[in-house]
């Protein structure tokens, strides 16, 4: 199961570290990261493989969301399938 993690918010030190620590702690492997800063706003789209995740998806989503709230960014985690079905025939 692949995940798409989207992070948007005001830039600060340690956003990638905070997100990736949760993923690493739960045995979720990062496949790619696309990140930039636009007008002081942090944007990141991260693809990860979560088949061996220690946590069920719903709990992992909740952990990332809570972490995002603590550091002032919005973190959305989605099953990749929704993008696949919409954009691939």
């Amino acid at each position: 199961m692949k995940l798409v993690v989207t992070v948007v918010g005001k830039d600060r030190v340690g956003i990638i570290a905070a997100v990736t620590k949760i993923l690493a702690d739960n045995n979720v492997n990062i496949l790619s990261i696309n990140q930039n800063i636009l007008d002081g706003f942090f944007n990141m789209i991260l693809l990860a493989e979560a088949s061996e995740s220690k946590m069920p998806l719903v709990e992992l989503q909740s952990a990332l969301k809570t972490q995002g709230e603590e550091i002032g960014v919005e973190i959305k985690t989605q099953h990749q399938e929704i993008f696949d079905v919409m954009h691939k025939i």
């Binding site: 798409v4 989207t6 696309n34 789209i45 693809l47 959305k76 990749q80 929704i82 993008f83 696949d84 919409m86 954009h87």
Partner: peptide, 12 residues
């Protein structure tokens, strides 16, 4: 492979 534009379009 899914593209960044596809992800952004779906989420928009």
């Amino acid at each position: 492979m899914i593209t960044i534009d596809d992800i952004l379009e779906t989420n928009r």
